[in-house]
Amino acid sequence: MSVTLDLSRPRPAREAAPVSLIGLTRPELAARLAEDLGLDPKKAKMRASQVWGWLYNHGVTDFAAMTNIAGPMRAQMAERYVLTRPEMVERRVSSDGTRKYLLRFGPGVEAEAVFIPGVGRAGALCVSSQVGCTLNCTFCHTGTQALVRNLTPAEIVGQVLACKDDIEEWPSGRDDRKLSNIVFMGMGEPLYALDSVAAAIDVISDGEGISISRRRITVSTSGVVSQMDALGERTDAMLAISLHATNDALRDELVPINKKWPIAELLDACRRYPGTSNAKRITFEYVMLKGVNDSDAEARELVRLLKGIPAKINLIPFNPWAGSPYECSDWDRIEAFAEIINRAGYASPIRTPRGRDVGAACGQLKTESVKRRASELRRERVTAD
């Protein structure tokens, strides 16, 4: 007896996974509600404004808390959407109050963010834009972690929400706010993740939500010249340049991306960065490496290079990490370097190291899980031998 299979009947469709509303820009959120809930554009815009306020002004994590939205619509949204936060795997607090967060966004996808009180108007959150990094800057511990992928807008915004949860800063926009500044100076090169960074800045800066002004959001790049104009045009964020050397030979060694975009090209891009003025200066970051880049001659050359660029220069005492070939410049050498720059008319604050005791200082970020796996592998090799 033969059996004929009827293949004409469609198989039941798999249920679509719930969509996270975190990280959508305001227009994207309105479009999503219109499409999924069948709302006309005017109603969708109004509902999006309500949801936006709950997510980013009040920090809610449950649709049931959105009390100015009717119950049936809240139930519809709860079926279709999630309000995803990253998982806080580890939270370490330094003796100086700095908080380092290890956040998990998915299996094998972890990054670190650092909250530094007393920076900017009140406190700054250093966020990551990638998991790992491709730049291999020789003084930076983060550069020793291989790139996994770019973070999404939701994952970048999620770092801000996780911090605000931890410091208990809801609702947003309070006069006594603790988080006033965002710096894209964590793991990764932000201009290699520009789409995500730009979308996240749109969310973070919105005045009816988290409400951190674009003038208090700084994006640091090691010199991805091809994306610098776009960064200014799309985000209007403050720009920081990870410079660290005054000649191409040394910068090729310290910041290898310099081989693609040397100092002259980088500084030309700085001169045309949109909106730059004495009121909107570019920050040049310069890590102080003993006997490498800290001479008086290099200070004078730095002044010459930056002529005509509205700038300030952050001098960063090198933060040591195991296996690094560098040492931090002596304090009197750093002060002498700063004095030459100050006399030339540039502000040159010496950045106070923060969070060194928990591995949260500049250049020290590398996810603890990666460090633990490396340690376990070393132990296994020793045992095998």
Rank of each mutant, 00 (worst) to 15 (best):
T4I: 15
A13S: 15
A16P: 13
P18K: 07
T25G: 07
A30V: 04
E35D: 14
L37R: 03
P41N: 07
P41C: 10
K43A: 12
A44I: 01
K45D: 02
L55M: 09
Y56P: 04
N57Y: 10
H58L: 13
T61G: 12
A64E: 06
M66H: 02
P72D: 07
A78C: 08
Y81W: 07
Y81S: 03
V82C: 06
L83W: 01
R85G: 01
P86L: 04
E90I: 06
E90Y: 08
S95L: 14
G97Y: 12
G97E: 09
T98V: 14
T98K: 05
K100T: 05
L103P: 03
L103V: 11
G108Q: 10
A111H: 11
A113H: 07
V114Y: 00
R121N: 14
G123V: 05
L125E: 03
Q130M: 02
G132H: 06
L135T: 09
N136T: 11
T138M: 09
T142K: 00
Q145D: 13
A146Q: 09
A146P: 01
R149W: 06
N150F: 08
A154F: 03
E155F: 03
I156L: 03
V160P: 00
L161P: 00
C163D: 02
D165S: 10
D165C: 08
I167S: 09
P171N: 10
S172I: 04
G173S: 08
D175M: 14
R177D: 03
K178D: 08
K178V: 06
M187W: 02
V197H: 02
A198E: 00
A198C: 01
G207T: 12
E208Y: 12
G209N: 02
R216C: 06
I217H: 06
S220W: 02
V224G: 03
V224L: 11
S226L: 13
Q227K: 15
M228N: 02
M228V: 08
D229P: 01
L239H: 00
N247D: 12
D248L: 05
R251K: 09
R251H: 02
L254Y: 00
P256C: 06
I257P: 00
I257K: 02
K259W: 01
W261H: 14
P262C: 09
E265Q: 15
C270V: 02
R271T: 09
I282Q: 00
F284Y: 06
F284G: 02
E285A: 15
V292I: 15
N293Q: 10
V303A: 10
R304M: 11
L305P: 01
I313Q: 03
I316E: 01
A322L: 14
G323I: 09
E327K: 15
E327V: 08
C328D: 03
W331S: 14
W331L: 12
D332H: 15
D332S: 15
D332C: 11
R333C: 09
A338R: 13
A338Q: 13
I341N: 00
I341T: 01
Y346A: 05
R354C: 09
R356Y: 10
Q364H: 13
Q364R: 13
L365M: 05
T367H: 13
T367V: 15
S369E: 05
R372G: 08
S375V: 05
E376I: 13
E376A: 15
L377C: 07
R378G: 01
R379G: 13
R381T: 11
R381L: 13
A384P: 08
